[in-house]
């Protein structure tokens, strides 16, 4: 490419990335401003002074500590649940031969089409009958039964492992469960990380589930807390942006650490070009 083409490309990339990134900068900048500077015109890009205590005060206006604890509980337990259960099921689909396997796998694929919005009303009724409404159980327990997309993803990984390995292990006296647990799991560890990342992101940002299943403020998650905070007339934009920034920190860190796993996961799900 010639120098002209290169400069045009760079100019375009710089301008468009600026457009993509500016709301972000605006969020962090607002979160550090003093109340009087929020409505300054023209906008003040670099806060003067930097008010880091906005974060602390916003955090204590509403019980965000409690919301954080609830969110972390859900994130940790659902991630453990989905990684273990999805990998067990995926192992069954990929490595064991039994009657009905293909039919069930077809059902699994079809089940990905069922939207949450359709099942959530009866789920609400079901959880109400079980006495689970307004407990974190509604959001945690289902993750221990495998998630269709994760099962599909992990099955693709399991299929790439040579079968000699299973046979050799069984001749050496491993039970099928030991083959899964001691031989296969370590091999597919990168895929487990991918699944874990997806789950952490989903659970961290989930809004509709908590909105429907949780009522008492003590059980609120961060996203519900942020929405509650937004609805309060006392809330200033700087405090709101401080909380929004804090809520965004976790997905950001995970994104930076897990970039290669995310991309690897997408590639492995069989979408080729």
């Amino acid at each position: 490419m010639n120098i002209f083409g290169k400069s045009v490309t760079y100019a375009f990339l710089i301008i468009s990335s600026f457009v993509f990134i500016i709301p972000f900068i605006w969020m962090v900048s607002t979160s550090l401003k003093e109340p009087g500077a929020i409505f300054a015109f023209p906008p003040q890009w670099i806060p003067d002074p930097f008010l880091f205590q906005n974060y602390k005060s916003a955090w204590t206006i509403a019980p965000f500590q409690q919301f954080l604890e609830n969110t972390v509980t859900i994130v940790v337990l659902t991630t453990i649940g989905t990684v273990i259960s999805s990998s067990i099921v995926a192992f069954g689909f990929a490595r064991l031969v039994f009657r009905g396997r293909n039919v069930w796998f077809a059902i699994l694929l079809a089940s990905m089409m069922i939207p949450y919005e359709v099942t959530i009303i009866p789920l609400y009724v079901e959880f109400k009958l079980l006495g689970w409404i307004d407990t974190l159980r509604c959001l945690i327990v289902p993750s221990f039964f495998g998630a269709a997309f994760n099962i599909f993803l992990l099955r693709q990984y399991f299929l790439t492992i040579p079968y000699d390995l299973d046979e050799a292990a069984i001749i050496d006296g491993c039970s099928t469960f030991q083959v899964y647990w001691r031989i296969m799991l370590p091999i597919v560890a990168p895929a487990l990380v991918t699944v874990a990342i997806f789950q952490v992101m989903n659970a961290w940002t989930d809004f509709m589930g908590p909105l429907i299943f949780l009522n008492d403020q003590r059980n609120y998650t961060l996203t519900l807390g942020l929405n509650l905070f937004r609805n309060s007339y006392l809330t200033e934009w700087n405090n709101l942006m401080a909380i929004a920034s804090l809520v965004t920190v976790v997905p950001l860190i995970i994104f930076f650490i897990g970039q290669k796993y995310l991309i690897g996961g997408i590639a492995a799900s069989g979408i080729k070009g």
């Binding site: 259960s85 067990i88 099921v89 192992f91 069954g92 689909f93 064991l96 031969v97 039994f98 009657r99 009905g100 396997r101 069930w104 699994l108 221990f144 039964f145 495998g146 269709a148 099962i151 099928t176 899964y180």
Partner: peptide, 9 residues
């Protein structure tokens, strides 16, 4: 064995 693995799902 097969169903004890996929039974969970």
């Amino acid at each position: 064995e097969g169903y004890s693995f996929i039974g969970l799902w």
